[in-house]
Design a protein around this nucleic acid. Structure first.
Lengths: 208, 208
DNA sequence: GTTTTCATGTAACCCGTTACATGATTCA
DNA sequence: TGAATCATGTAACGGGTTACATGAAAAC
């Protein structure tokens, strides 16, 4: 049984890794985490929880209802928590820094759990993301160049705005990468101005 | 028969309004228009064309194949064009300035056809969009404020970046609105500083 | 005691992509 | 003549939402 969405399941796994929770509460935390102005629907959440249980990554335990545990426990809320497999799986996700990590769909979740990700992986994901975005920048710039003659001023304006958005995001990444490198330099006093092409200077597995 | 997607069908209608085209060419123009770095799939395009035909808004005519019209016209490309109904429908879409026009899903397409939209409608859509975004700004700001204590630095960073994106978009809209008002003032020398609540000052249907 | 909020779910639908199937035309 | 591009489509799937159904607990 496949979990519906990779990003949603990772987000759930990550939150349950911090502390067990029931679905309703999970949803609120997910909304905070993913920072969306639009709330995740139950129609996505519960089926995903179900499939995560099916994978054996989480288990749901009926919690006694109410603060006062009256003996008539009929239909309680279900508190989910990670299994050993689930913990392992989550850690293996955290450790991967492949292309999947910096694609549009996944980058945000991965970034949201950077505090639990080791410094090397963080840096590699940020750099991968940056390359990805500069590639896109090229495409959009060419598109705008082509559009400059063919389309009207409003369409052009729209595309230029899109371009600016991507440029802004690249600058954001640049700052983050600088910070990560700065933190790394501060720990490993080699002071050799580390480059992306020259990562052979940090101490072995420098952690924050 | 409902057209699959409102934004896709409007985009198609708008492009066919400029000139008849066959599907394959339409796709290229759509990609330019919507300025996406990711191309629209045929699996979306052709079914949508089909449903637009079903609605009676466009018709597809078999065009003779090749530049040299050899008599053996077996399977030609299908050139689509607007029907009278289709033109009418497209005009009625262009004229509406309701909430639907400034929601996330629709705003971009509507904006892309601003050159065919009359100045009043343009301004109302831009203002509506601006209000929509400032509402969102409030929500996101509150969310960031709540997050400031509860979540780690990376999650917070992500949300602040999201906030900046929205702020940037609001500034973009501000410039556009200024331009539209400026153009309007330049045409209608009443100089009464036109407000959204007081649109009764422009010359009848002022065009760019 | 009734309304609100908490809490869990399902079924239908929407809009898009991927992968597949097919064939004409152009160009080397 | 064979590859690349043009051109049109369909079926299956993916990941989300809305709308619905249900009921317990808390607040008024």
């Amino acid at each position: 049984m496949r979990a519906r969405s990779d990003v949603l399941s990772m987000a759930i796994l990550g939150l349950l890794h911090e502390s067990p929770m029931h679905g309703y509460e999970l949803r609120k935390r997910l909304n905070l985490l993913l920072g969306s102005f639009r709330a995740l629907s139950y129609g996505s959440l519960y089926p995903c929880l179900k499939s995560l249980v099916g994978e054996g990554w989480i288990v749901g335990a009926d919690a006694p209802s109410g603060v006062t545990p009256t003996l008539k426990a009929k239909r309680a809320k279900i508190v989910y928590e990670l299994t050993a497999d689930g913990k392992e799986h989550f850690q293996s996700i955290l450790a991967t820094a492949g292309p999947a990590a910096w694609e549009d769909e996944n980058f945000d979740v991965r970034f949201a759990f950077f505090a639990q990700t080791d410094a090397d992986t963080r840096l590699r994901i940020l750099e991968g993301r940056r390359i990805r975005l500069t590639e896109r920048l090229e495409i959009v710039r060419q598109s705008v160049a082509r559009a400059r003659e063919r389309v009207d001023e409003y369409t052009l304006e729209l595309q230029q705005h899109g371009l600016e958005q991507v440029e802004h995001e690249v600058r954001w990444l640049d700052n983050l990468i600088d910070n990560e490198r700065g933190a790394r330099r501060a720990r490993a006093p080699g002071f050799g101005r580390p480059t992306a092409a020259n990562p052979a200077d940090g101490a072995p597995a420098p952690r924050l």
